[in-house]
Every structure is written in C-alpha cells, then in structure tokens.
Design a protein around this nucleic acid. Structure first.
Length: 508
RNA sequence: GGCGGCGUAGCUCAGUUGGCUAGAGCGAGGGUCUCAUAAUCCCUAGGUCGGCGGUUCAAUUCCGCCCGCCGCUACCA
C-alpha cells in the first residue's frame, strides 16, 4: 500500500490561531484527506512549539506557571483545529517527554559524530530577541525590532557543524528538483548555498534560558530553537514506534510558510545528514495572505480568526475560499468581496443550485425514484460523463503538483457543464409530455451521477458538504471513496433519493 | 550591488519546445428559460500582452537595456 507523511509547522504558543496558520492546516488537511480517500496509509502531524524565554515570560506575565501556561495555550490550539475539523493523526508538544528524550538522543548522536563543538565568542546580544546581532544588523546601534541597545556579552556555546554538509546538500537539491517546491523557493535555498552558510549555534546557557531541553552532554546548557523544534517531525513518528517511523519518515512532506524556509531548507536537512538519517522527501512552501491588500497584523486590527469564519460562512466555504483563491507558493489577498463572490458564484449558484434543481426534479417527476439510463447513451450524455472523467484526471494531476486551486477549478468546470446539460436537455420541458418521461428519467440519472462524482472529487476539499450531499443521494457512505465505480453503476433503478436541501444559501 | 520572481481585458489569473483573428472565471451591459438558492443558459465588452530596441518569414513567448512591485542575499559611505 502507498503511504505518505504530512506535517505542518508546530505553532509557537505565544499567540492564537489566525488566518496564516489556518491556511497551512487547511491545505495539509485537504492533502491528507485526499490521500486517505484514495487508500493511502497517511500520517498527518501537527503540534505546538513550547520552549524559550518568550514563553516563560508570557507565563510570568499571565501570573501562572510555565507548564500550566503552555498546557493552556497548546490546548487552545488543539481545540481550534478540532473545531475546524482538522484530521491530524497526532498532536505533538515539544514539552512531551518522548520528544525531549528523542531530541537528546539526536543531539548525542550528532555530538558523538563530532559535528557539535564548543566555542567561546563575544557579541552584541538583544535579550528581547534572544539572539546576537552583528554590528551591521543594528540600526543606530540598536536592535531593529526592539529599538533597545544590545549588551556586549561573552559566552561559550555549542555549535553544529552545518557548513560541513553544505556541498552535499547542494548536490542533493540539484539531483532532486522537487525536493523543495515550488521552484522559486528551491532557488532561494540554492542561493543561500552558494554563499558560506557557516555553523549554527544550538545552545544557550541555563543562566540565560532555563525553559528548554537540556543538552545530554552538558547540563549547564539547554538547546536552542531549531534542534528542539525541527526534530518534532521525527519524534512525532517515533512516538508511535520504530516501525511507524521507518515506514513513514522517508515519505515525509513538510508544509511550511515561506517565513521559515531557511531553517527547513538549510538547517534541517544538514541536521538529518549529521544524524545519519534519510532526508525528507519534499519541502512544500506556501505563500502568505494579505487582508484587503494589507499585511495582517494585530496593530492594524485586521487579523482573521478561523473560528470566526466558521461561524460566519461555515467551514467548507472558508476552506473553499482559501484553497480556490490562492495558488500554492504565491501570496494571496483575503477580501470580503472575493469571499462573497466565490461563495455565491461557485458554491451557491454553480454547485449548490445544481444539486438543488437535480434533486427537486427527481423528486417532482419521479418521487425520488431513480430511472434507467438510455442504452446506448446519446452523445450529449457521454459528453457529460466525459467532463467528469476529465475533471477526475485533472484533480489527480493538480493535487500532485499541489495546485489545489486548479483542482477545484477543474471540478467546478464539470459542474458548470452539468448546469449547461440541464439547459440543453431541458428535462423540465420534456416532462410536460408523458411520452418523454423515460428520457427525463435518464437525464436525471446522469445528473445524479454528476453529483455523486462531484461528491467524490470534492471530499478532501469540502468534506462536510460532500458528505451531506452524498447522504441526500442516499448512497452508502463507503461509496464516497469508490473512485473506480463506473458512470451509471452507482444508482440502481428504483433507488430512492432524498428531497433537496440548500447546501449553500446565497449570501445577501 | 548580486541572485530570483513578477508586471497579459475593471478584478484574479491561463498561456513551458516562437506561429491560426491573445484565452478563462468573476464583474459590467443586453437577452432567454423556468427545474432550481431572483439561480440557469446565450450574446457582447475589446487588452500598445510594463516601456524601448534587437534576432527572426513570424515574439506575449528568445536576447539587451530601462521602469515598477516583491523575495532572498551582500555591502558601503
């Protein structure tokens, strides 16, 4: 059986779920549902990133213990994704015992291999950023983020010999053109690799940072950020056992936003090389959303909450908008106006209305009882079937390229074709003549097939709607993923379907 | 400064070995059916394919320069 492993970034527990993280979740959830529906053994991981001073500070500000604080925020993320019906298989927390143990095992392995060394240096440190700055990065001698003067401190830390793997990574990316996609982001990483990438500082002394994972080879230190966070992709699998890890890891597909390309494109693969592990299969990088043309930010007060969107237009409509309105890897703009247009134009008028008129006629003319198809089928019927066969092929191709917008476009072209088919065959006119009723029955049977295949193709994208409509067709739920079931074979003559229900009531 | 991407109808975009009168969806204008969620369906709109120059029988598609937007990256007063 084919299998795949889908991951999202783990979310830092100093904020709330917003449009950006929801977008990553909806994309990955769709991909995971897509593969599951087609019988692939799929493992889908998400979680929360919980270490660092910012978290300890936020907890202190909130007047609660750090652990209690992270429990609370992590749970709120998990609850948000549950409310959004995100079908992750495991939710990892970097404060989980198994994760901590595995991070230490990983560190020890890389240390044993000689790729972690101790080094003394001094530099300008910004406590707000928890990082060192080079003089040229400063603005007027101050931290560009916090606008405070950094402190000159001397420190000894552990470094990962990342530069050792620079050449090997470069060759790997060149030999595997789809390792990082879309291409633009691959080129960015190649650009980084053409410079000296240097080594990576991976520790912080406990005097400055206590809320972290202790280095197994020096208890005066904790590990810093990436050796903690990135390793979740492996510990999350190891948690389920070595066999699960062995099976899924080589099929790993990471999905990230473009802001964390460098750690995933550079740090992570070199870390894996140092640990003697296979590299992930794909790094899939998506773009950002602006809101009404502006960058989304708390200060502008234009942050979109997925939970609010669920209440406002429903989960499926929200999913549809995000998936249809963005091209993977490119930025997109969230506009109230586009949202309404997509909802009314595609969901209500095209798909919803198609279902409505089909089921209404089936009910009105035949009391919901399915009639025989014509044998042989007229050309117009064949063309309808072909439109859906073509859509199915397109969906396969486009999802494979992560172009979910085009996959959806293809399905809606087919439902659009079905709407035209109704106009061309005019069953409502034929129905006036009793002698034409057999043809009316056949036309409606074809339309029911159109709806059935639409449900199948849309299942990963619009899970709720797909299941709801399939229930109206009164077909057994397992047939929802019976992709090889031929046109005309799903509905037995005499089968009873339900009365119509508005799937997407028009807005305004 | 270097590298990369982008700039096609009001909006979002297709257009990948250079070649028919440059396309789609939405919006807008006109018309139509009546099964349906005032939905459907049909027609129309007309864009110097960012600008200039070059290669070619022929360029949106190749080359050079320029303008604008964006990303990454380097650096200097």
């Amino acid at each position: 059986m084919s299998h795949t492993y889908i991951t999202t970034p783990i979310y830092y527990v100093n904020g709330d779920p917003h449009l950006g993280s929801a977008y990553t979740m909806i994309i990955t959830d769709t991909i995971a549902r897509y593969y599951r529906a087609r019988g692939w053994d799929t493992f889908y991981l998400t979680g929360t990133d919980e270490h660092g001073n910012k978290i300890a500070q936020a907890a202190a500000d909130a007047g609660v213990g750090t652990k209690e604080f992270t429990d609370r925020v992590s749970a709120s993320f998990r609850a948000a994704w549950d409310t959004c019906d995100i079908t992750y298989d495991h939710f990892i927390r970097t404060t989980d015992d198994y994760h901590i143990r595995y991070v230490q095992e990983f560190l020890q392995k890389v240390h044993d291999a000689g790729d972690i060394y101790f080094h003394r240096y001094e530099g300008l440190y910004c406590f707000g950023c928890e990082r060192f700055y080079t003089p040229k990065e400063l603005r007027d001698g101050k931290c560009p983020d916090h606008l405070t003067a950094p402190t000159l401190i001397e420190e000894e830390n552990y470094f990962f010999r990342m530069s050792k793997y620079q050449e090997r990574l470069l060759k790997h990316i060149e030999a595997n053109p789809n390792f990082i996609r879309p291409e633009g982001f691959k080129n960015e990483v190649l650009g980084m690799l053409r410079e000296q990438i240097g080594d990576l500082c991976i520790s912080r002394p406990k005097s400055r940072l206590t809320w972290g994972i202790e280095l197994p080879f020096d208890q005066r230190y904790v590990t810093y950020v990436w050796f903690d966070a990135l390793i979740n992709y492996i510990s999350g699998l190891k948690y389920k056992g070595e066999a699960v890890f062995q099976k899924f890891w080589p099929e790993a597909q990471h999905f990230i936003g473009k802001d964390i390309l460098k750690p995933h494109g550079l740090f992570w693969p070199t870390m894996l090389m140092a640990a003697g592990l296979p590299l992930y299969k794909h790094l899939n990088v998506h773009g950002f959303w602006t809101v009404e043309g502006q960058k989304m930010s708390k200060s502008l007060g234009n942050v979109i909450s997925p939970l609010a969107m669920k209440d406002k237009i429903g989960l499926d409509a929200f999913r549809y908008f995000l998936l249809r309105e963005s091209a993977f890897g490119q930025d997109a703009d969230f506009r109230e106006e586009s949202l309404t247009a997509r909802y009314n134009g595609d969901l209500a008028n095209n798909l919803g209305n198609l279902a409505s008129r089909t089921l209404a006629m089936q009910d009105r003319y035949f009391k919901g009882i399915v009639q025989p198809l014509n044998d042989p089928p007229p050309e117009i019927d064949q063309r309808l079937a072909a439109a859906f066969t073509h859509a199915a092929t397109e969906v396969e191709t486009q999802v494979g390229n992560l172009l979910l917008n085009r996959a959806l476009e293809a399905v809606f072209r087919a439902t659009d074709h079905a709407n035209k088919y109704i106009t061309e065959t005019a069953p409502f006119t034929l129905a006036k003549d009793p002698a034409s009723l057999p043809r009316v029955g056949a036309v409606l049977h074809n339309l029911l097939e159109a709806l059935r295949v639409s449900c199948q193709l849309l299942l990963p994208f619009l899970p709720e709607t797909s299941q709801k409509l399939f229930a109206l067709l009164n077909l057994p739920a397992e047939q929802l993923t019976a992709y090889s079931l031929a046109w005309g074979k799903a509905f037995a003559v005499g089968h009873q379907i339900q009365k119509p229900q508005a799937l997407f009531p028009r807005l305004q």
